[in-house]
Nucleic acid binder design. Structure first.
Length: 545
RNA sequence: GCGUCUGUAGCUCAGCUGGAUAGAGCAAUGGUCUUCGAAACCAUUGGCCGCAGGUUCGAAUCCUGCCAGACGCACCA
């Protein structure tokens, strides 16, 4: 809808140019911004200020020559010069009301766009080691990845999501050993625990169950058993968080299908590998990394980096041109070497986007809860969700920027549970549904937008709501382009606020039938947009609470 | 020591490619239910945007330096 206005302004400048009133050849980019203050209109343009230098005239003078060629459009109430040289546009209600018909025809497609052009994106997230239950930090990554996948799909990208299972390296070996040792302990044997083994409570449980099911105390049996059990937990806990993946990608499968070796050979051919000190190294410094990295160790074992190379090679070979990885911030040192791989494989380094989620410290009453897999003293994601609810937990993550570290205080989130912001938005949705129910009870005939006199919607509160509804598609687009789901929660907060405020002051269903019908169109629009937005955040939209 | 991220109201955080008098929520205080759900609304209080320079018509936003915190700097992930 904004395009109409941009076109009008552009035409005015072109006309002024032909009339010789403007000399600048290369026009600065023209975009509309939304002023914070209502006195500054609906849209503001700063082009006159941008042109001040090349024109050699004061901004306000330039604004004047543009503005005098913008008159008589039904969608513009007025355009005026303000401040240092802004041109402020006040749009007519006619302009805004178009949105309601648009929402009605598009329904759950309202807000979707095609900027993604079907581009194939592989979004990999969580990818927690299958050596223990998920914790709160994984929850943050899961919430971000899940919402981002929904947003990118809405923006027209062809998104596939994957959980990469590290089921091949030393960590799963350690897990297997841990379970074995625990089994022996249960049998009364005295064993020695080395530093890198897992001693959590869950290891005891695994060992216990393994023995009960008649498992033999050998690595070949205990290892796969433990791995399989834990993968089941991960899947179950993520589903409980309403997070699912298109594919669970096994690291081991890369070895079984020889893809690791093939990827290494490929880089060898390009002379990007060399031997030193008995190990095989990748020349990541050729692509900006601080140092070269070992791919095959002196003892012949590949590093995790080796399979990571193969995995990303495989992603590209499957036709994805943009790879997004969501990592915990403690892995940030890994980025340069992965970017190096991407370039070595012949792709632009920008085709790999790594989004970092900062650490989450779990608190209870302001006191840190010690989190360590080794010591076994930690609270799992599942326990957190059981305590505060999946929607509340997700929302809490998605109101914050991923790159700022956060405190998650169980007592605070719990004590505010009924006032948690997520309920504010869900309540707005339920409220819209409730008004619909009430209208039906009153036998109000609900008509489509085209059959209703929408001009009756002229209260400032109504126009404010409709303006917010108009902005929704841009919010989705912005969130997609910046990979920032938290823009959706911020938007929802504002929209729900307008709605609640309106509701307290005005009745929707009254004896005034035409007015009620017009307002119902708006309520349905609200319901659609709030529902769509909640869907992109990844939380539920309840019809009643 | 080097690198990445962060520093905005008492607390938790927004602030979109630089824009006009920096915004929410929570907490605090005082109001609002005979009428579509009060999980809501209205009002008040609250700020040297970490500090110091620089860039320009204009800086919370960009650049430099410093201070503070988190996380990294393996042939572990």
């Amino acid at each position: 809808m904004k395009e109409i206005l941009i076109e009008i302004i552009r035409n005015a400048i072109t006309e002024a140019k032909t009339a010789g009133e403007i000399e600048t050849k290369e026009l600065p980019p023209l975009y509309l911004e939304a002023p914070k203050k209502p006195e500054h209109g609906d849209f503001a343009v700063n082009i006159a200020m941008k042109m001040a230098q090349t024109e050699g005239k004061p901004p306000r003078k330039i604004a004047e020559t543009i503005i005098k060629r913008i008159t008589g459009h039904p969608i513009i109430d007025k355009a005026e010069i303000a401040g240092p040289g802004f041109i402020n546009f006040f749009m007519s209600n006619e302009y805004w009301l178009k949105t309601l018909s648009e929402i009605e025809t598009l329904g759950e497609n309202y807000g979707k766009c095609s900027i993604g052009k079907g581009q194939k994106i592989l979004l990999e997230y969580v990818s927690a080691n299958p050596t223990g239950p998920l914790h709160i930090g994984h929850g943050r990554g899961a919430a971000l990845g899940d919402s981002l996948s929904r947003i990118l799909r809405a923006a027209g990208y062809d998104v596939a999501t994957e959980f990469y299972i590290n089921d091949a390296g030393s960590q799963v070996q350690n897990l297997a050993l841990s379970v074995l040792l625990r089994c022996r302990e249960i049998k009364g044997e005295e064993v020695e625990w080395s530093e890198n083994l897992y001693k959590g409570e869950y290891v005891n449980d695994l060992a216990q169950e393994f023995l009960e099911k008649g498992g033999k105390i050998i690595v070949e049996q205990a290892g796969p058993y433990a791995l399989n059990e834990i993968l089941g937990w991960l899947r179950r806990d993520l589903e409980g968080f309403n997070v699912t993946f298109d594919k669970w990608f096994s690291e081991k499968s890369l070895y079984d299908s020889d893809k690791v070796q093939k990827a290494i050979d490929w880089l060898k051919q390009k002379a990007l590998m060399y031997d030193k000190d008995g190990a095989l190294w990748f020349r990541s410094t050729d692509f900006g990394d601080d140092k070269d990295r070992v791919v095959i160790r002196e003892n012949g074992e590949p590093t995790y980096f080796a399979s990571d190379i193969a995995y990303h090679h495989d992603k590209f070979q499957r036709g994805f041109n943009t790879l997004i990885n969501i990592w915990g911030a403690d892995h940030h040192g890994y980025i340069p070497r992965m970017k190096a791989v991407v370039q070595a494989l012949g792709h632009d380094k920008e085709s790999l986007k790594v989004l970092l989620v900062q650490m989450v410290s779990l608190l209870r009453n302001g006191q840190p809860v010690i989190m360590s897999k080794r010591s076994g003293e930690f609270i799992t994601l599942k326990e957190v969700m059981d305590e505060v609810g999946a929607d509340a937990a997700k929302y809490t993550f998605l109101t914050r920027r991923p790159d700022s570290q956060m405190d998650f205080d169980l007592e605070i989130v719990k004590s505010q549970s009924s006032e948690n912001p997520v309920y504010y938005m869900q309540y707005a949705y339920a409220r819209a549904c409730n008004i619909e129910r009430f209208a039906e009870e009153k036998n109000l005939t609900i008509l489509p937008a085209s059959k209703v006199n929408l001009g009756l919607l002229k209260l400032p509160e109504e126009i404010r709501i409709i303006k917010a509804l108009t902005a929704y598609p841009e919010v989705v687009e912005g969130a997609a382009l910046s990979f920032e789901p938290h823009r959706l929660t911020a938007y929802l907060q504002e929209l729900a606020g307008h709605f609640h405020s309106y509701y307290r002051g005005n009745r929707v269903v009254t004896d005034d039938i035409p007015l009620s019908q017009a307002r119902m169109v708006m309520i349905k629009g609200l319901k659609t947009v709030i529902g769509n937005a909640l869907g992109l955040v990844g939380v539920s939209a309840p019809k009643s609470m």
